[in-house]
């Protein structure tokens, strides 16, 4: 069981709660959601509590993440997009911290569950759709009709655009989920090789060196992926929001 690479994604109920026949138990997943929110929130709050004119290291991290996301959003969606800054920043920080927490051994990775990433993706797309219709009414549908397309091709292009729009929440959520899931399974499998090989005495220990090196390398890679996926999620959110703000391409 110790080497079961799927075990780390298991949901364990800590406090069973049942409402209306549905299971709303407080699970290890819930606990790590709380940890993520509290951890990220406390970090941002505590590091900036001195309001230093000259920032310390930790305050610099908070400020850098703020400006990083702000520049990302401004580049993708313009200054009008800045009203979505709290949303994009929350998504970025939540996903980033959740991914990074997942890197601790024995920690649960909430972004390795499709339902979580899908819910976040739906939040993004829902915001895009609701804001798009609120701001532009039916003009928002111009999003599906790019400029300069010959009349004959319009139905085809519109069909393609609609499909690509509908696939956005899926690709957005599956990208994050699959990266985290695959990374953690790979790590677990290689780490499992180390323990099972070293059970075979001296030769096994010698043979375990390669998977050990791989595990170390993969751990580094996974930290990169953890950041990169949070970044990709935030960038795509910015681009989709840009569609809601400027639907006419």
């Amino acid at each position: 069981m110790a080497n079961d690479p799927i075990h780390q994604f298991q949901i364990a109920k800590w406090i069973p709660i049942e409402i209306g026949g549905l299971d709303f138990s407080f699970t290890n997943s819930s606990a790590f959601m709380v940890a993520t929110a509290v951890g990220a929130g406390a970090f941002l709050y505590l590091t900036t509590s001195s309001r230093g004119l000259v920032p310390g290291r930790l305050q610099s991290i908070s400020e850098m993440s703020y400006e990083f996301v702000a520049n990302m959003l401004r580049d993708a969606a313009g200054t009008q997009g800045m009203k979505f800054f709290p949303l994009v920043f929350s998504l970025f920080m939540f996903v980033l911290v959740a991914n990074l927490f997942g890197m601790f051994p024995y920690f649960f990775t909430i972004t390795s569950h499709l339902i979580v990433t899908f819910a976040l993706a739906l939040l993004v797309i829902g915001t895009v759709v609701v804001y798009g219709f609120m701001k532009h009414g039916f003009g928002f549908l111009k999003l599906f009709v790019p400029h300069g397309v010959p009349g004959v091709l319009v139905p085809l292009v519109v069909a393609i655009e609609v499909i690509s729009f509908l696939s956005r929440p899926i690709s957005l959520s599956v990208r994050l989920f699959a990266n985290m899931l695959a990374g953690h399974i790979t790590l677990k499998v290689f780490a499992g090789f180390v323990t099972s090989l070293s059970a075979f005495g001296a030769i096994g220990v010698a043979g375990a060196i390669l998977p050990l090196v791989m595990t170390v390398a993969l751990t580094g890679l996974e930290f990169l992926v953890a950041f990169l996926q949070a970044y990709v999620f935030a960038v795509l959110t910015c681009m989709y929001l840009n569609d809601a703000i400027h639907p006419g391409h």
Binding site: D23, F24, T27, S29, M33, V34, H113
Partner: peptide, 13 residues
């Protein structure tokens, strides 16, 4: 696990 995950995600996020 979906209801629990969705609920707690909604609360925490």
């Amino acid at each position: 696990s979906y209801p629990s995950q969705l609920l707690w995600l909604a609360i925490t996020f």
